[in-house]
């Protein structure tokens, strides 16, 4: 039972921090690009940050659901999805959207490293939890069968 609260709260906190990184902890670059027509549009890294807010929100909700649900199998499923969401969080700034061209830009210097580290933690923690739950499920099955 302790594990249920612990795992849920850890996942929720990690998700919350991922959500907050692009918002206020380490914001992406704020400058706008001038287009040929004279208007301004945000840069790539801004959209990466936006996507990560979604990723963080998903993981946060996953954590809350981990606390709510008692069934080992449901929690196992949530944990697996949380781990995969963490992978998505890593892919967004590296492959899927990307950011600025220079290492010293705020997005490449602080936002992305912070997000990647947090997502690595999410992946490690959620897969660890999934393995734990999978084993527990097997134990329960053994008990009911034998």
């Amino acid at each position: 039972m302790k594990n249920r609260f612990f795992s849920g709260i850890v996942a929720a906190v990690l998700g919350l921090v991922i959500l907050l990184v692009p918002l206020c902890i380490f914001p992406t670059c704020t400058k706008m690009i001038e287009t040929a027509s004279g208007g301004t549009v945000p840069m790539k890294c801004f959209w990466s940050g936006r996507a990560e807010i979604g990723v963080g929100l998903l993981i946060l909700c996953g954590g809350v659901l981990l606390v709510i649900f008692k069934s080992t199998l449901i929690r196992l499923g949530i944990s697996m999805m949380a781990a995969l969401t963490g992978v998505l969080g890593i892919l967004v700034p590296i492959v899927l959207i990307g950011g600025c061209k220079m290492d010293t830009m705020p997005c490449r210097m602080t936002t992305f490293p912070a997000l990647i580290v947090l997502c690595v933690l999410v992946v490690a923690f959620s897969s660890g939890n999934a393995i734990y739950l999978w084993r527990q499920n097997k134990k329960i099955q053994e008990k009911t069968n034998g």
């Binding site: 400058k31 690009i33 890294c45 220079m102 830009m105």
Partner: peptide, 10 residues
């Protein structure tokens, strides 16, 4: 002040 994609002093 304007470099490529990213606006940052260069």
């Amino acid at each position: 002040l304007n470099a490529g994609c990213c606006a940052y002093p260069l």
